[in-house]
Design a protein around this nucleic acid. Structure first.
Length: 155
DNA sequence: GCCAACGTTGGC
DNA sequence: GCCAACGTTGGC
């Protein structure tokens, strides 16, 4: 199975790529996703070694800022079990979790952030889910071509 | 801070 | 099962 390519969004105020680079083992668990489609991607399709674009949403400007990779495949998002956690969800039970997450590890930060306007004006990226109206998925697949193009724009 | 786009929830 | 209300996301 060849590696797949993904894009994950984070608000830099909450968790930025620099936070990931500084994290223990430069690795974090991608918790708090409470969207079924994104959940399915993490639970079923993201595999160890898959490459992931790290995207800053709600930034000025919004931009792709670097790359990380999947180091642990879908497992229950335990933050959903903790009533004190911001992402607590009483629907999710230990024996039948509703929500899943993966672990990602820092790979590199782009020399130059690739901004949303740049992505929108690049013809090769017109098909990206990211720029389709109304798409608010925080985890989404990208093609190898799109991934390579963004890496090229960022270096 | 605003608001459009959506997903989810809950009353019926 | 419909649909209005509500909450969240995320660009601007």
């Amino acid at each position: 199975m060849p590696a797949k390519y993904w894009l994950i969004k984070s608000e830099p105020d909450a968790f930025s790529i620099d936070d990931l680079a500084k994290a223990k083992d430069q690795t974090t668990y991608w918790d708090g996703v409470r969207n079924y489609q994104a959940r399915n991607y993490m639970r079923d399709e993201m595999k160890i070694g898959d490459k992931v674009i790290f995207y800053h949403s709600n930034a000025e400007p919004p931009c792709a800022v670097g790359i990380c990779e999947v180091v642990k495949e879908g497992y229950p998002d335990f933050t959903a079990f903790d009533p004190h956690d911001k992402h607590y969800d009483p629907k999710s039970k230990n024996d039948s979790p509703t929500w899943f997450m993966v672990d990602v590890k820092f790979v590199m930060k782009f020399k130059k952030a690739v901004t949303l306007p740049e992505i929108k004006t690049n013809k090769k990226l017109h098909k990206m889910k990211l720029i389709q109206p109304g798409n608010r998925l925080s985890v989404m697949p990208v093609t190898k071509e799109e991934f390579d193009e963004i890496v090229k724009m960022g270096s």
